[in-house]
């Protein structure tokens, strides 16, 4: 193997090393990937560096992943019934998929919602894991309707997908007063304070929650100053609220 790698030009060796090391910025990483797809020398140099540097990862002590992570993975690879696979998405997202919507302002207290929701999601996790091992159709979605406190028609529909993402579809939200924004919150069952999921566009959005919603997880929309709550907690009235599991059998 060492004889082979001597034939690869130094420039390629170093570029591959920088790539595997993780020292390149986003554009450079993409450029290396594109080039490696068509350049066997570069691909071989990358594989060689991966092998050389892999033991360095042992320098990081193992950390148990959150309990619900396996359930997310199992659900995503679960066999999907043909009919569901062919069904078009319920909603073409107006917003690009964001991995874990950016909090508008740094939350004052750092308790990850997934920590709070761990207990609530354990039962769900067990259920999904069992599903994944059986050739049974998995329900593709969980739904919740976000309704105003007067229980009029829902303002938004929330659809949880098996891949862990959540789609908010605008049903009939009331217009937002000028100079104000709607902000989205999640309150896992048993949690004492909601966590911000960011400002909610009137058209709806798609996002990945820190943990897939479990039965009992509440989603709320509050009216806030432009740009979102300044305190990290809801400051305005709750316009819409709904609970996962309420509509599902």
């Amino acid at each position: 193997m060492s004889g082979r790698s001597h034939d690869i030009p130094e420039e390629v060796q170093v570029l591959a090393g920088e790539y595997v090391l993780g020292a390149l910025d986003e554009a450079e990483m993409l450029a290396v990937r594109r080039r490696a797809a068509a350049d066997p020398e570069l691909a071989a140099a990358i594989a060689a560096w991966e092998r050389r540097l892999a033991p360095l990862a042992d320098a990081v002590p193992p950390v148990a992943p959150p309990d619900e992570l396996w359930a997310r993975i199992a659900a995503a690879v679960a066999p999907v019934p043909q009919e569901a696979a062919e069904r078009p998405p319920l909603h073409a997202p107006a917003e690009p998929l964001v991995p874990w919507a950016r909090p508008v302002r740094p939350p004052p207290r750092r308790i990850w919602p997934w920590q709070l929701a761990t207990a609530a999601s354990l039962a769900l996790a067990a259920g999904l894991a069992a599903f994944a091992l059986l050739p049974r159709p998995v329900p593709p979605v969980e739904m919740a309707a976000l309704t105003p406190p007067d229980a009029a028609a829902p303002g938004f529909l929330v659809t949880a997908r098996p891949d862990g993402s959540v789609v908010l579809t605008a049903a009939a939200p009331a217009p937002v007063p000028a100079g104000r924004d709607m902000e989205l919150w999640v309150l896992p069952k048993g949690a004492s304070a909601p966590a911000s999921l960011g400002v909610l566009p009137a058209s709806g959005m798609r996002m990945v929650l820190p943990t897939p919603p479990a039965p009992g997880t509440q989603i709320m929309v509050s009216l806030e100053p432009k740009g979102g709550s300044p305190t990290g907690k809801p400051t305005g009235p709750v316009l819409y609220a709904g609970t996962f599991g309420a509509l599902s059998p």
């Binding site: 997934w114 820190p210 943990t211």
Partner: peptide, 8 residues
């Protein structure tokens, strides 16, 4: 949450 996304 970001680390969990990466592993997922």
């Amino acid at each position: 949450p970001l680390a969990a996304d990466a592993v997922h």
